[in-house]
Design a protein around this nucleic acid. Structure first.
Length: 385
DNA sequence: AAATATGTCAACCGCACGTGT
DNA sequence: AACACGTGCGGTTGACATATT
């Protein structure tokens, strides 16, 4: 059954809000508070749908909102969080007081995404386009991350058109029209590479709820960004180190001015936004063995302790919610183990992390610890999700 | 000065989820 | 269990402002 829209399309005003309408909303909220938005239009005397009223309040009228431009620090945090958790705008917005998910989303789409693209960084994967193209050449006909290629194409098109000379040398042989070539490999987007890899694994290895998958891909993404932050030396040779991505002057060229570099915050390096390809196995056989070693029991204990510790709680007093989460995490990880052991046609495509960690879950746990130190509120979001 | 292109952002849309009945 | 309802979310659209030709 298809539910009709929350309000009829007839007799409902749409479009920009007038000052008079804003005043009515403000007066209504001052008197009755927020909530039950479906009755607000009637009570407030508005020809609007309740959903529209709620949106107007949450995105514009709420006194908690900031209406000035995003600061470089805020933009920096958006990029970092996007690298960690993707386009979960509401969660990102919660880390930025006074900003709404809509604000964050617009900021990303209008400015940050473009900035990254102009610097040759794929805003979806946070990896250099050159690296992606090189990988693309290496994998030949294997569609390892179809969605990534697909989502990449829009940004890449612009950059490639802008600076073709920079990428000609690394284009796979035989690809004369990069756009056409990429488009032929497009799959429905929405999923990011990390999510796609994990989904592929779970779909083949076991049946899991979306919830556990969601949690795992967040953890894995978090691991990726934290590892990238500490191991971006590879890119420092080709990219200018300590160059603030938000510095407009530095964006216009491929190098940073001396002054710009002097003024840069040492805690922030644009190479932090690059993600190493964590799914290329350094030693697939060893990874398989490591993954197989970890028993379900060990996993549960490890995961439970880490989650509780991260949450600042004594394991013995932590709420039952944790057990549920642990169960979901370990179900998902076991699915990965199965997938690895099966090696049933996709294990060679998405092998476990190539890091120095001894297992997939340890990698996740380490990454989780790191990111939660930076963004402690994220842990609560994971519980709430 | 006019036409066109581009950027920004408020608002809309459809879907998913939680809750109550 | 099935349904209705309220709410939240992410993707997209379109109006307006500004820049460029």
């Amino acid at each position: 059954m298809v539910r009709p829209p929350c309000c009829g399309k007839l007799n409902v005003k749409r479009g920009l809000w007038t000052a008079d309408e804003d005043a009515k909303i403000l007066a209504h909220v001052a008197k009755h508070g927020t909530g039950n938005w479906t009755v607000v239009p009637k009570k407030a005397g508005l020809q609007r749908c309740g959903k529209s009223c709620r949106l107007r309040w949450t995105n514009y009228l709420s006194p908690d909102l900031k209406h000035d431009n995003f600061t470089p620090q805020e933009e920096e945090m958006i990029i970092r969080l996007h690298a960690a958790i993707g386009s979960r705008w509401s969660i990102i917005a919660q880390q930025l007081p006074g900003r709404t998910d809509n604000d964050v989303k617009n900021c990303w789409n209008a400015r940050l995404r473009k900035k990254l693209s102009e610097m040759g960084i794929d805003p979806v994967t946070h990896k250099p386009f050159s690296k992606i193209l090189a990988d693309y050449g290496n994998i030949g006909g294997l569609v390892r991350s179809g969605s990534r290629i697909g989502s990449l194409s829009r940004d890449l098109k612009n950059v490639f058109a802008l600076r073709p000379e920079q990428y000609n040398s690394i284009l796979p042989e035989g690809i004369s029209n990069i756009n056409n070539h990429l488009m032929t490999r497009m799959v429905p987007r929405k999923m990011e590479p990390v999510q796609e890899c994990l989904l592929n694994r779970f779909n083949n290895g076991s049946t899991n709820s979306n919830h556990s998958l969601d949690l795992l891909d967040q953890l894995q993404a978090i691991k990726l960004v934290t590892e990238a932050s500490s191991t971006c030396a590879e890119y420092q040779t080709m990219l200018v180190p300590n160059c603030n991505i938000l510095d407009e002057g530095s964006l216009s060229s491929s190098t940073c001015s001396t002054e710009a570099q002097e003024n840069l915050p040492t805690s922030f390096r644009w190479c932090d936004f690059l993600l190493e390809d964590q799914f290329l196995p350094s030693d697939p056989q060893a990874e398989q063995e490591n993954a197989a070693e970890l028993s379900s029991k060990d996993l549960r204990n490890q995961t439970r302790n880490v989650i509780m510790t991260s949450h600042g709680q004594n394991p013995s007093t932590m709420k039952p919610q944790c057990d549920q989460l642990v169960a979901e995490v370990t179900v998902g990880v076991n699915g990965v183990d199965l997938a690895v052991q099966n090696n049933s046609g996709f294990g060679d495509q998405v092998a476990p992390s190539s890091s120095q960690h001894s297992s997939f879950v340890e990698t996740i746990i380490d990454g989780e610890n790191k990111i939660f130190l930076d963004f402690p509120n994220l842990l609560e979001e994971l519980f709430n999700y």
